[in-house]
Write a protein that binds this DNA or RNA. Structure first.
Lengths: 234, 234
DNA sequence: ACCTGAACACCGTTCAAGT
DNA sequence: ACCTGAACACCGTTCAAGT
């Protein structure tokens, strides 16, 4: 009896938090196709089936991971800014950066609404900034929608390009040749597209993409503000 | 891949075209998760392995389906319009409608660039309209990017909501109750979000969404035009 | 309460063999 | 040239059984 160890609370090897952390790691490292219950379980030193005690499905697991990374968006910094345009651009840029850091999350945005605590917090913040900027209630979520849409749309295209660039990095000579031939044909049949260098062969420089984004975002802000000031002029 | 010629026709039961048509059917009916090589083969009365004679991977098959549906975007109608704003809005709306009709394509947009013939044709067209509207070469693809981004972003959010609405339709009473409780909590902690009815509980009416889209698109167009007319004012 | 072990039904892909 | 048949290595999920 003296030898019998004290009955202690069974130390759980698993928890949602621990699982989600590993899920994010795997997704960051291997992408969506590299994620499997077995892989996550293996990294946790556990059996695949055990994950189902903490999580209903793989889908739910991914959803938790999605909101977890949304928590990386730094809202506090923008909150203190006096200029509302600067504040909005700052959150948008932070949002954009997070999505580009975890590109696997981008395809998920169209298959479910993001209603996790972090997503809600971010939306509420943006509404607060818009509200203080003088947008009235009716225009508030129209403006929020448009701005969010532009941010998400921007990362969709940038992500697509980056995936392509990485695939090109893995390509062999033959594939490279094929790609060059293909680009040439685009030029022949689509003169304007060929001239628009950014569209066909954008530079692999983060700052150029960031400037691009700021430009589009600024134009949209201008358009929204113009409407707010004079709705009747269309 | 767009360069690789299709294999010569003899008397074949399969062809890329036939395969792609079935793939689109399956995707429309069952969504991305419902697509499998076996299912496609079954519908074609053929063995799964045989598909690999016509197509390198499942991924390539999906890519072909993606460009196929992009071909549904009606460009000709907009091409004849005198007013460039009207023309741009019209193509954008057509593009939007196609993506909402085939929602499975939306998550694909961020994982690969769309370089199929139909995608290129659409881009060239939009550039032509912008060019005629007086946007000079430097601003041309900046404008194209921003506009495309808004369109894609808009369908991402709308698709997310529609998927959620369909899931809600399949929910049982308990889940419904849970959802109501959840919405109530949002209101408590996020007053502005709760007030923005469209953000929390948008109407299930296509015309309202369409108006929303036109509004955001119009604002962006105004912002772009303002910049074109007077770049120095920021 | 929490996890194991083993199973089930399904995948994408390959490839020798047939025609 | 085009397709079959069968196999391989991998899935998500379930669940009785253990502790």
């Amino acid at each position: 009896m003296w030898l019998r160890p004290e009955r202690r609370v069974r130390d759980r090897r698993l928890s949602r938090e621990r699982i989600v952390r590993v899920v994010v790691e795997v997704l960051d490292a291997e992408g969506h196709d590299g994620l499997s219950m077995r892989r996550v379980a293996e990294r946790l030193g556990v059996t695949p089936g055990s994950l189902y005690w903490h999580v209903a499905t793989k889908d739910e697991m991914v959803e938790l991971a999605l909101d977890a990374v949304l928590g990386e968006v730094d809202i506090a910094a923008a909150e203190r800014m006096a200029d509302w345009r600067q504040a909005l651009l700052t959150v948008a840029q932070a949002h954009r950066a997070v999505m580009l850091r975890h590109r696997w999350m981008i395809p998920l945005l169209s298959t479910r609404r993001t209603l996790g605590p972090n997503a809600l917090r971010a939306a509420e913040h943006t509404l607060r900034v818009l509200s203080r900027a003088g947008f009235d209630e009716d225009m508030l979520d129209a403006a929020l929608s448009a701005l969010n849409q532009l941010v998400v749309g921007a990362v969709v295209f940038e992500s697509a390009w980056r995936e392509g660039a990485e695939a090109a990095g893995r390509a062999d000579d033959h594939q490279r040749e094929e790609a060059a031939e293909f680009a040439r044909r685009i030029g022949e049949r689509h003169p304007l597209l060929a001239a628009a260098r950014f569209a066909t062969d954008p530079p692999d420089r983060e700052d150029v993409w960031a400037d691009r984004f700021a430009f589009g975002f600024g134009c949209l802000l201008n358009g929204l503000e113009a409407y707010r000031s004079a709705p009747e002029t269309r």
